[in-house]
Design a protein around this nucleic acid. Structure first.
Lengths: 187, 187
DNA sequence: CCTTTAAGTGGAATGCATTCCGCTTCAGAC
DNA sequence: GTCTGAAGCGGAATGCATTCCACTTAAAGG
């Protein structure tokens, strides 16, 4: 686990820049590995060495965009950050996560289209750990880790994309339903 | 929407048989479109005409296997079928769905590996409609459709696969967490 | 029986993610 | 400065899902 070589991190930056540019220009659909490699001026092999696969690249792009969100609930001001009651923080966190999921919907969909389960690395684990902590503090008798999964699951990108885009369900309805579940748990 | 031609339905059967045989022999990973076509003695084009894509084929295989389950909650004996209290039926349904999801986990994972949202056709809609009906009957003041989505989401194949296979979480813990959520809703 | 035609068919062609491997470059040791 | 080996690199090769389209065939009407 040594440090990353200088040319390697330079390439990582070039690739992420190129990918972000392509997404801005052609949307997520235009993001083919060959095209990103060409735009970044590297070989496709380099892309795979850095990011593992297409979905890894998508996650890297998402991560870049949501550093702010991640620190908001870890160390930001209440009600998202520390200082508020757990029940309040849970609700604020799930609402905020709903918004960022909708904001990154296309990238998230691309990321989840992958045979591997790598999708649950990185960001998901961070959200899960955070929610587990809050639930455990509020209701110590529950299996906080599993309850956290169950509360996070309704915000999965494919489900939201289907309901909101295909069925025309408003995101506020999704939020309300989650709130109804929370009312039962947080009581 | 006329009737299906006789050669077409014969081929559908040949393909499903061949696919089931390959799954039994080499597992879901060995299920490539070319291989299925060869084993069934048809061209790949036929496969696509019948099932749309790889994930459509997976759903067709799943459907074949769970006709029994589908009729059990629609017309079978209580507590799964009609006759029991909605609260009881909801719990029984979600428990049964948990079991069948675990039983079909590999096929479901294969089915959900697809860029399209076709995954939510067929079986998912049937489960969703059923649960929506039960929730609406029990708690008319709630947005039953959205609550149903939220209760179904924790049973998504990728999440269960990750927790159970990668993290070693027992399925009974998943069930208990869902029950905890239900306690809040069904009360 | 013919005719007609829409549905169905096979398999070559395409496009894209992913893998492979011989070559190059970095960076620490001497 | 140079040696060395591990890390990184490029891009051709591979494998597989999916598309395309010229060719068959079921089956309904006359």
């Amino acid at each position: 686990m040594g440090r990353e070589r200088s040319d390697a991190s330079r390439n990582r930056a070039k690739i992420l820049d190129a990918a972000a540019g392509i997404v801005a220009l052609h949307g997520v659909q235009g993001l083919s590995m060959a095209e990103v490699a060409a735009a970044a001026g590297v070989g496709v092999g380099t892309l795979y060495r850095r990011f593992g696969d297409r979905s890894g690249l998508a996650y890297a792009l998402i991560d870049e965009r949501e550093r702010a969100f991640q620190s908001a609930f870890i160390e930001g001001p209440p009600p998202l950050g520390p200082g508020a009651e757990p029940a309040l923080r849970i609700r604020a966190f799930l609402h905020a996560l709903t918004d960022r999921t909708m904001a990154q919907l296309d990238l998230l969909l691309m990321a989840e289209t992958s045979g591997t389960f790598a999708r649950f690395g990185g960001a998901y684990d961070a959200y899960h750990a955070h929610l587990t902590m809050l639930v455990g503090r509020l209701r110590p008798e529950l299996d906080a880790a599993c309850v956290a999964d169950a509360l996070l699951a309704p915000l999965a990108a494919p489900l939201l994309a289907y309901r909101v885009r295909e069925c025309g369900v408003g995101i506020e309805r999704v939020r309300s339903a989650l709130d109804a579940l929370l009312d039962g748990i947080l009581a």
